[in-house]
Design a protein around this nucleic acid. Sequence first.
DNA 1: CCATTCACTTGCATCATGCAAGTTAGTTCG
DNA 2: CGAACTAACTTGCATGATGCAAGTGAATGG
Lengths: 177, 177
Amino acid sequence: MKRKSYDQMPCPIARSLERVGEWWSMLILRDAFAGLSRFDEFEKSLGIAPNMLTRRLDALVEAGMLERVRYCERPPRFEYVLTTRGQDFRTVLIAMLDFGNRHFAPEGANLLIVDAVTGEAADLVLADRRSGRPIAAPGFRMAPGPAASDAMMAKLSTGGQGLLPVAAAIPSQEHGS
Amino acid sequence: MKRKSYDQMPCPIARSLERVGEWWSMLILRDAFAGLSRFDEFEKSLGIAPNMLTRRLDALVEAGMLERVRYCERPPRFEYVLTTRGQDFRTVLIAMLDFGNRHFAPEGANLLIVDAVTGEAADLVLADRRSGRPIAAPGFRMAPGPAASDAMMAKLSTGGQGLLPVAAAIPSQEHGS
DNA sequence: CCATTCACTTGCATCATGCAAGTTAGTTCG
DNA sequence: CGAACTAACTTGCATGATGCAAGTGAATGG
């Protein structure tokens, strides 16, 4: 049964997931960030079936997240390298790493981001680059962009701010189970 | 064919994806943040088949991302509400929203995060909450956590810093295609 | 009583998935 | 030279996931 496409959804999250939301795709990107680029490297790292890896690599190339770089003339052989767009997915993966460390590491964190000088683990928060302020209400709010539909406008005027944390409720003050 | 589990992988990203990485799961969480909680609300918003919605809601409850709150005694009826853990997934979704706006909104952004006073769109970056510094090399680095395997240690000592942006290459200076 | 709504459940056909084997081309070694 | 190995896929096939559509049961309202 063909998976239902999100592509007619205007939501940027849905559109991202349309392209990277299949099983294996984000882990392939993770590995690409780790410097892997060849078919057998991904295959070994992930323990993924070759036909699935082919499918996912092709989809990520098609989505503009990876590009194929030929490294061998005959037979034609390709490496799969992050595009600029692919590089830009980094924040999502780091955020997910942070989340996973906090919630799914019963034996303790396995991989951390630490201050290079003090060695202290970083406490991650999304911030506005220009002002340095954390992204939280009431300083920030969700707003319709130039392409917002009437439905989106309506949703935002009646609420729809839930994705933004409220400053007094910033997650690090309420560590998860 | 049963999907291959990531659960034996020590990587926090993989562990997160094991629980939220199936098709529909993250969009359900997005909608939960938007305040939706009842079965029919999710169904209408997503255009998802009822049997799939049941499966995904059950999985998210099992993963501790959502909890069932009974709102009706007979017949038993439940709302699906974000847990503290579920709330903590917010950063991932915001990061993905930002990414989607930059790369998959040819008609322009549909949903933005803006400064509540100036109305100017926020420029998102992951930062360290305590120091306010952006998470980037060389100020920060990836390091093995207390539970790191020998393999992870080896990987980090020979590289494996690729997921951290380098300060001079911070993504907003290189907007994607 | 019937119609509607809600929250699922069930039946079924189609597609995705993973395992395992196969193919092609190049390289290395006896 | 042929055999063995490596790399990058492709192919065949059985199983599970997916989505459509219909169904079920309970409550409410006319």
